[in-house]
Simulated scan of single mutants.
Amino acid sequence: MSLPSSSIDIFSDEVLADPYPTYRTLRDLGAGIWLEQTGACFVGRYADVRRALNDWQVFSSAQGIGFNPVINAAWEEALICQDPPTHTARRKLMMEALGPAALSAVVDTIQQRASALAERIAAMGTFDAVTDFALDLPVGVVMDLIGWPHDVRPRLLDLASGSWNAAGPANARMEQGLGRLQGMMGLLTTLYDEQRVLPGGFAAKLIASSHRGEITRDTAIGMLAGYVVAAFETTISAMAAGIQLFADNPREWDKLRADPRLAMSAANEIVRMETPLQNFARVTTQDATMSDGSVIPAGTRVVVSYASANRDERQFRDPDAFCIDRSEKQNLGFGHGPHGCAGQNLARMELTAVFSALATRVARLSHAGESARGLNNISRSFTRLPVLAIAA
């Protein structure tokens, strides 16, 4: 069965502003759709995306997860661009810093920061969900956890912002993202060479592993870069998206206020609804038969669409509805399989802590002005989101 094709450009401004109707159109066309504008095959149905994320032998990351050769060469040493067994060994290093045992040390810090943030938002009334809210825990907790020097933190955050653009196809956003990424790589290289990281953090442990010869210098810098890009923008995006979703769905906020224990479920639903990283690439190593019988030929670059899968009506009842006590729990917002997000435990902890704290202090969230999204080839986020919080 041959693949249907489409002239839809999923990286156009119009689609990036509101991608979900386009994703549905593509899902309805088939399990695999050849995108003429991108030169890749779109995979957006839940069952097929989940299979692709698990079946690394057929859907390989080793030729890069981006949609242009420049970024795939630059990220050759990044963890997300490796297949097992190389990926397995390197991921083990990362999980020593991000696994449940390591994160137990920051549980109290996260709870305290979440409580203080909720108090501040309730007192402010009108606030920006990005700058006043979403930045707080990812920056305050993750920066310390990794061990970045205090003087470089503002610059590192600025360089990380928007850098996912570099993974898109050749367009203006990609060029802009490459500039930011090059600046970030230069900064990380300097920090590595001068050993200017704080002792005890993930960066220091990774650098020490490199000095012991367990990984190379380039691998260490690549792993640090991959974590910087993923850790900040994605969690910040999810934090702001949660505020937007609760402002749009006051009944769901009432549910959370009535039972703050739903915060963990709410965190998962936020990530399902507004998947921070929308699409990554894989390359097929052999012909791949999809759920509808169509075949993606070997050597094809594939758009693996986490965001489309998370809105697939074949998997989720009423998929465009925000429902924090949804019965279908398994979404792909944090990935799945070998490349499941290494930082997902931390992200869930932060989202759960901050929304459970906010629910005890804020009676209602409502929009207080025009929001703005930063169009990005890969990630989905707000640049401005003014909100009114009515204190409980």
Rank of each mutant, 00 (worst) to 15 (best):
M1E: 15
S5E: 13
S6H: 09
F11I: 07
D13S: 14
V15T: 09
Y20S: 05
P21K: 04
D28W: 05
Q37D: 11
C41E: 10
G44Q: 02
R45L: 03
D48Y: 02
V49K: 01
A52N: 00
N54P: 06
D55W: 00
Q57M: 11
F59A: 00
A62R: 11
A62I: 10
Q63V: 11
G64L: 12
A73K: 13
I80R: 08
C81H: 08
Q82M: 14
T88Q: 13
I110C: 05
I110N: 03
A118G: 08
E119H: 14
E119A: 10
R120M: 12
I121E: 05
A122T: 00
T131H: 11
T131L: 12
L135E: 12
D136P: 05
D136N: 07
V142M: 12
M143P: 05
L145D: 01
L157S: 15
L159I: 04
N165H: 12
G168K: 06
P169S: 09
M174K: 12
T189F: 13
L191C: 03
R196I: 14
V197L: 06
G201M: 04
S209N: 10
R217E: 05
D218S: 14
I221C: 06
M223S: 08
V228S: 08
T234L: 08
S237M: 02
S237H: 04
A240Y: 01
A241Y: 04
L245N: 00
F246Y: 07
D248Q: 15
D248A: 14
R257T: 08
A258D: 14
A258M: 09
R261F: 07
L262M: 03
A263C: 04
A263K: 02
A263S: 11
M264W: 05
M264L: 08
N268G: 12
I270M: 08
I270V: 15
P276D: 00
R282E: 00
Q286R: 15
A288N: 01
I296E: 02
T300D: 03
A307K: 06
A307E: 01
R314Y: 03
R314C: 07
F316V: 00
D320Q: 11
A321M: 10
E328A: 15
Q330E: 12
L332R: 03
G333P: 06
G335E: 00
H339L: 01
G340Y: 13
Q344H: 13
M349F: 01
L351E: 02
A353N: 05
S356G: 12
L358I: 05
A359S: 14
A359W: 04
T360Q: 13
T360G: 07
R361L: 08
V362E: 07
A363I: 07
A363L: 11
S366W: 07
H367N: 06
H367D: 04
S371R: 15
A372H: 15
G374D: 13
N377W: 12
T383I: 09
P386Q: 01
A389Q: 00
I390N: 11
A391C: 08
A392C: 12
